[in-house]
Amino acid sequence: MEKEQKQFYERLEQKGVSRRDFMKFCTFLTATMGLSSSFVPKVAEVFAAPSQRPPVVWLHFAECTGCSESVLRSMYPWIDELVLDILSIEYHETIMAAAGHQAEENLQMAMKKYAGKFICVCEGGVATKYDGGWGKVGGQTFLEIARDVVPKAAATITIGNCSSFGGIQAAAPNPGGYVSVEKATGVKTLKIAGCPPNPVNFVGTVVNYLLLGKLPALDELGRPLFAYGKTIHDQCPRRAHFENDEMVTEFGSEEAAMGYCLYQVGCKGPETYNNCPVVKFNDGTSWPVEAGHPCIGCSEPNFWDTMTPFYEEL
């Protein structure tokens, strides 16, 4: 363990990441997860030397791969560490080197070898009309795959709005009868909501699992409370403008340049539970309201139907 930890820090330093930066990140993640600061060294341990890498089976259904792309942007831990050193990604259509029959074999082998022990991550909605015929991989429908794999997992994380709530293809009139993975399988899933979600919320959930051996506390929709416990509105730096009735009424206006509240140009922050204002995206670079754009409510169920028109006041 110690030797591995030493190697880990050496590697970090080679990359120009100091031990201090790394501990700073662990503190950030620990805080994001809502754990007390005494957990910081333990969080660091999870990244430095996992004893056995937990097997992950990542399924793609009807989606745009935006959620996988989002996880690829993870900077602490770097995505190569997630893939090579922390997790064991047994099956993932986009990143695995195998293709065709060999790829499908990987899925079957992982399910056998790790029955009841693997984490299943699902991305995308599941078609149910026409025997699920509108979505297939290798001749098998998404519906068949989901019903086969998900019940065999130790836990299933649905990443993104599509697998969590059906997503864009489930928006009215939903011609293919798309539903969430939970609806398709009858198995309760942990939902990392968003379109796509912040990778920090996915990593935080995984760390919680590795650290405490269980999934984090959830809200009634199945979203982890550490990330989805408060509204955007309650954490928004523009909130004072809202209270003072200082409103942007048109993009490109004086008020927009002054950073006033975006409520009247359609901000859905008051009805959206997520932590964007606090953790921000891409290593804390920005988030929609900071970039002058209203929140569109992407972490809420059926937001394509319930939060549109995006540019009209709630």
């Binding site: 690829l72 900077m75 927009a256």
Partner: peptide
């Protein structure tokens, strides 16, 4: 992952940028 931060600077986040609107962009600040 670093390169994607270019998008976040003027586009709020990557993937799925959120600063583009009909008529221009919103990230004036």
């Amino acid at each position: 992952a670093k390169a994607a931060r270019m998008h976040a600077i003027f586009g709020a986040k990557n993937p799925h940028l959120q600063s583009l609107v009909v008529g221009g962009i919103t990230s004036v600040r």
